[in-house]
Amino acid sequence: MLMIAVKAFLILLYATFMGFMFMGIIRIVTARIHRRVGPPIYQPILDTIKLLSKKSNITHGLIYDFGVIYALGATILALMFIPLGGVSILRAYGDLILITFLLEIPMLGIMFAAMSSGNPWAGLGAQRALLTLLAIQVPLGFAIVALAEFYGTFSTYEIVMAQQTVGWSITHLPLLLAAIAYDIVLQAMFGKEPFDIMIAPGEISLGPMVEFGGKHMGILQIQHAIALFAETLFFSNIFLGGAVVTAFASPILNTIASLAVLLIKQLAVLMIAIFIGVIFPRFTIDQAARFYWKWPTIIAAAGAILAAL
């Protein structure tokens, strides 16, 4: 029991820290592509500490508070189910469908909180977020179907283990197609351009985020960090082979090595998202929906059908 608590705490700490580093990396890399210097890598942590230590916080009622707490709580829940090298706690229950759903529900909390504020931008943002979700769900669904059909199991951990013998998922054609589609979906899950329609800075004033400030915003920053970590981790596990290092004699060294391997893979996923993000301008929502329902869907459906044969 105590062992599990300690492990869970360490995982949470590592995920939060790395998530904030990812946020810092996004800002630095974006700045370098813009030929700016950019902030230091720990800037998001400073921002969050500032937000959390604000003396005056406002609320729009119980749902406004609870939605924020729910978003972070659900993100932590999702994180615990994703295999993280050799240390994760609930990986035996890390079902593909379950994790896919769990990664979506924090958004529900944010939407509830944002909408209860009554701000029109927040309402608009919620609408856009939901339509984005609707748009990405089709290719996402097909990609998950392809995975489940290819491996004949829904357990994320078993998929990771299977990849140790048959090679990374992306080396097989059906799953390569699924991975391409999933990566395009990931762009919208991160809220990066060209699919940053829901927050749309400068257009609808950050949409759902517009009313949040102080500790509410701080909690959402932490949520964003963990979600970033969890989403890249999930992708690395199911498509990029995860990490199971058994080269060393000491289990601690093995764990550290696995985490390092995973980190490299996660960073690769993140970099692709950043590079695409800084190049493209924003889609409008109907363009995004049409796009997702066309190419990624065709690619992912082809993958799913090939995997079923």
């Binding site: 604000k54 609320t59 009622g61 707490i69 972070l72 709580g73 659900a74 102080g214 701080g218």
Partner: peptide
């Protein structure tokens, strides 16, 4: 989920007190 909510709630309650504002007090 309860564990996650408790952790989030701890962070929330560590912060300063909140003041309730009406729906018109908005950006």
């Amino acid at each position: 989920l309860v564990v996650g909510l408790v952790i989030a709630a701890i962070i929330y309650f560590l912060g300063a007190k909140v003041r309730k504002v009406p729906v018109t007090d908005t950006y």
